Computed example of a mutant assay.
Amino acid sequence: MQIKLTDHAAEWFKDEMLLKTGDSVRFFVRYGGTSPLQEGFSLGMNKEEPMDPGVEYTKNGILFFIEASDIWYFQDHDLIVDVDEKSDGPIYSYEKK
């Protein structure tokens, strides 16, 4: 699997989370919410250092990652991250590999 961020999403994370070169953002599975992949689970994100990354993607000097323990959630899909213009927040979509 891969993580793919649009340029707009990378800038949004940098601005909203006050990120600088060398920082990292984890996408993680959380209980509750809705998802097209896993009923009863949703995706969250947090600024933190990786412990056991299963997937990594660096854009504009920022590391975006998913821990190996959360890979099950994606069921052979890539994570696509963009920004919703109306809500001015991240939107996640999934692309079957």
Rank of each mutant, 00 (worst) to 15 (best):
F64Q: 08
M45G: 04
G32Y: 01
L43T: 06
L5T: 02
D84E: 13
M51C: 14
R26G: 05
N46I: 14
P90A: 12
I91E: 04
E95W: 05
G33D: 00
K47S: 11
I62K: 10
D15F: 06
D76H: 06
S24T: 12
F13D: 02
L63A: 08
P90R: 09
R26E: 13
N46P: 03
P53Q: 11
G54T: 09
N46V: 11
E16A: 11
L5P: 04
L37H: 06
D84S: 13
R26H: 15
N46H: 07
S69M: 14
V81W: 01
Q38G: 00
T58D: 12
D88P: 01
D88F: 06
L37A: 07
D23Y: 08
D82G: 07
G54W: 05
S35M: 08
S93G: 08
G22D: 10
T6P: 03
S87I: 13
M17W: 06
G61Q: 08
Q38M: 05
V83S: 02
P53C: 01
Q2N: 14
S93Y: 02
G54N: 00
H77R: 03
T21Q: 13
K96M: 15
Q38F: 01
F13G: 03
A9L: 03
V29D: 02
Y92G: 02
M1L: 11
K96W: 13
G22Q: 11
L79D: 08
D7Y: 02
G61I: 11
D7C: 01
G54R: 04
V55A: 10
K86D: 15
D23Q: 08
K14H: 10
A68H: 14
G22K: 09
V55L: 14
P36T: 01
E85W: 07
M51N: 15
I62H: 07
G89H: 03
V55Q: 09
A9F: 05
G89Y: 03
R30A: 06
M45L: 10
M1Q: 12
Q75H: 12
T58G: 06
P90V: 07
T21I: 07
I71N: 09
K14D: 04
V55W: 09
M1V: 13
D84R: 02
F65V: 10
M45S: 07
D82C: 06
E95A: 04
D82Y: 00
